[in-house]
Structure formats: structure tokens, C-alpha cells
Amino acid sequence: MKDRNGLTEEEFLKQYNPDKYPKPSLTADIVVFAKDHDKLQILLVKRGGHPFIGHYATPGGFANKNEPLEKTAARELAEETGVTGLPLQLLGVYSKPGRDPRGWVVSCAYMAVIDKNKVHVKAGDDAAEAKWFTVTKAHALICGDETLSLSDLAFDHQDIVGDALAKIGY
């Protein structure tokens, strides 16, 4: 079959310039919740590098070339928290301009609600810390003496976590 320029798909692809359109970087972000009796907890990592060094974020990171984003999510979760084998569910796609100061970055966010007692969390890769925060009904995040609001999270993770909380009705 030929297109309106008289080209077959093979001919079209031979002359196609993939640099014609700018490309974003792709990332995956993962929201992991655990229910502990009547408490809801969220797994967060403290960023060990720029940007947002020292801020908490959901685990996540950049996709490798030709890596499906589902695998990126599982890999990044394992690298940053040591957690593996979770049933990750697509939460949404986040592409607001300026969401990442490094440039045009589009993220697919995934989520899971798990039994916290079945995982062992250990910070790794570029995460300085990985720990559980209790989520209050007012959406404060509390771990020991630390209290965060969603707006304290790095990047646009306030939006991602807010959407995940809405999805589970919290």
C-alpha cells in the first residue's frame, strides 16, 4: 500500500528522519503503599544527588534504551529500595513542562498496595535513604520526628502521590 506521496512503508522509513521531532527522556516513578492495621504507609527515598538532593521522592528513574517502562519501574524500585516482585499497576503519565529541571522528562507512574511485612527495604543506587512514612488523613507524611507535606516531595511527586491516594480512596 502506498501513501499520498506514492511511498510504500519501506520507502517512507528509509527516508524518515528520526531527529525531525525532539524527544523527551522517559522515567518511571513508583508509589508503594502498605496498610498496617488502620494506618496507611508510603515508601519514600531521600535523594542522594541533584536535583532535589536531600528531598524525599517516590522511587524511580530513567528508562534504559529499548527498555519497556514496566521493567524500568521494577528495576528502579529494586535498585533504590531493594524491593522486588511487586504487582505494579499503571497510575498515570506525567508530562507537565518543568516537572524536572534537567529538561523534558515524561514519567509513567506505577503503584502497588502491599503487605509491608513481606518486603525488606534497603536504600541503594542514588537513594540516600529508603523508609516508610505514615500518611495521615490530612495527607501529612510522618516518620519518627520527620513530618512532610506532599508539597515537600521532589519534582511533581505531590501530584503523583495525590493521584495514587485518590485512586485508593484515601
Rank of each mutant, 00 (worst) to 15 (best):
N117Q: 14
R99P: 03
D100H: 04
P51W: 05
K131Y: 01
V93C: 10
R102W: 01
H50V: 11
Q89D: 07
H50C: 05
R102P: 06
G61F: 04
E70R: 09
E129I: 02
H120Y: 12
V45A: 08
L77W: 02
Y21A: 05
N117G: 13
K46D: 07
L43P: 01
N66A: 13
P59S: 14
H55W: 09
G48L: 04
D19W: 08
F62K: 15
G92S: 10
V32R: 02
G54E: 15
H139Y: 01
V83Q: 03
Y94V: 12
A73P: 00
L26V: 11
A57G: 09
D19P: 04
L86G: 04
L86W: 01
K116Q: 15
A128K: 15
A63I: 02
K46I: 08
K96F: 01
E76P: 05
V45L: 12
A73N: 00
E67T: 06
L69Q: 09
H139V: 03
A73C: 03
G48T: 02
D125T: 07
D125E: 13
F52Y: 15
P87D: 06
W132L: 10
A109M: 05
A138K: 14
V105W: 02
E146D: 13
K65E: 10
L69C: 05
V121T: 05
S107W: 00
S107V: 03
C143V: 07
V135G: 03
H50A: 14
I114V: 15
G61W: 05
K71A: 10
K118C: 04
L44D: 07
A73D: 00
K122Y: 07
R99N: 14
P22K: 03
Q89K: 15
W132N: 02
H50R: 14
T72I: 04
L69I: 08
H139I: 00
S25F: 11
K23Y: 00
A128R: 13
L88F: 09
V121N: 02
L43S: 06
K20R: 08
V119H: 14
K23M: 07
A112K: 04
H120D: 09
Y110H: 04
L90R: 12
K35A: 07
V32S: 08
V45K: 02
L43N: 06
E76K: 15
P97W: 08
V32T: 03
G144M: 12
G92L: 10
A28K: 08
G85Q: 11
P51M: 10
G103L: 00
A109K: 02
V31Q: 06
G92P: 10
P22Q: 10
C143M: 05
T136A: 06
G60I: 06
Y110C: 04
A112D: 13
K96E: 14
Q89G: 01
E129R: 11
L88R: 09
A127N: 04
V45W: 00
K23R: 14
D19R: 12
A28P: 11
A28Q: 08
V135D: 00
G92R: 01
D19I: 06
E76Q: 14
N66I: 07
G61P: 02
I42F: 05
W104A: 01
K96Y: 02
S107R: 10
Y56G: 07
K96Q: 08
D38M: 11
V113D: 10
K116C: 00
K65D: 11
S95H: 15
V32C: 08
